[in-house]
């Protein structure tokens, strides 16, 4: 059973008097622990698919399953809870909260849910994540005092702090130079191996796409390639996920 499954997902946006078909019927499956790249040129539908997988946008048709659960009928509060418990986000523009320092930005998602962890346990976990992303010296700094790469490292730590099953990253290297971008992807890959967290990231950078274990290529809102490294055919979900 896949951790994420899309079944004939379509997304249409009204644009004035015309409708834009951003995603035209996409189906794929992502297994737990995958390090997956959704690749394609601008306008291919990468971000739209990521938004729907991240439950921040709803498909016009079809179904998105997260950990086997259909999500199209969920209410706002249920979607919020599911996002908080299951998903972590890394944004293209980092999207850190400007008034909080590194430590507080990483702590922020832990303050939102109903799950309570002890202060000591929380501090230990945040400190570990800060060490992991190499920002020990910068823990008290505000985002405006950090470089782009450092900000994205904070965003990665923040995305991981709730121990989510899935981390979504929308063009995580787009605002970084290529060397820093590669470091960020390497860091994500390292965490993917260590924590077995599923990473789904969109990119149009061919060098970064090559690092992924599983690549889904899009063009004009359709999947043109669904390739798992070392496997000849497109990945398919095990039976049973879509029936939930």
């Amino acid at each position: 059973m896949g951790i994420v499954e899309l079944v004939d997902v379509k997304k249409t946006y009204p644009l004035g008097k015309v409708e834009v078909h951003a995603v035209k019927g996409v189906s794929f499956c992502i297994e737990k622990g995958d390090f997956i790249s959704i690749a394609g040129p601008s306008g291919s539908g990468k971000t739209t698919i990521l938004n729907m997988v991240g439950l921040v946008d709803q498909p016009s048709a079809g179904e998105v399953y997260i950990d086997g659960k259909p999500t199209s009928k969920l209410k706002d509060a249920e979607l919020t809870r599911l996002r908080h418990e299951t998903l972590g986000f890394i944004f293209q523009s980092f999207n850190l909260i400007p008034v909080l320092n590194v430590w507080e930005n990483i702590e922020f998602p832990l303050l939102l849910g109903k799950t309570r962890v002890s202060k000591a346990e929380k501090a230990e976990w945040i400190d570990h994540l800060i060490d992991e992303v190499g920002l020990t010296e910068w823990r008290k700094h505000r985002p405006n005092e950090l470089s782009g790469g450092q900000r994205q490292r904070v965003a990665i730590a923040r995305a991981l702090v709730t121990r989510p099953q899935i981390v979504l990253a929308d063009e995580p290297t787009a605002n970084l130079d290529s060397a820093t971008g590669e470091q960020i992807i390497e860091l994500m890959k390292k965490i993917n191996r260590e924590l077995e967290t599923t990473f789904i990231f969109s990119t149009h950078d061919a060098k970064i796409v090559d690092i992924a274990d599983h690549i889904i290529r899009l063009k004009d809102g359709l999947v043109t390639e669904n390739l798992r490294r070392g496997e000849p055919a497109a990945a398919a979900c095990a039976a049973g996920s879509a029936e939930a």
Binding site: V56, T80, H84, I97, L112, T162
Partner: peptide, 16 residues
Amino acid sequence: TGEIGTMRAVGAGRGF
């Protein structure tokens, strides 16, 4: 708007 959207995305409810 972006900041509020981010908070909502990472799990902040309307109450927050």
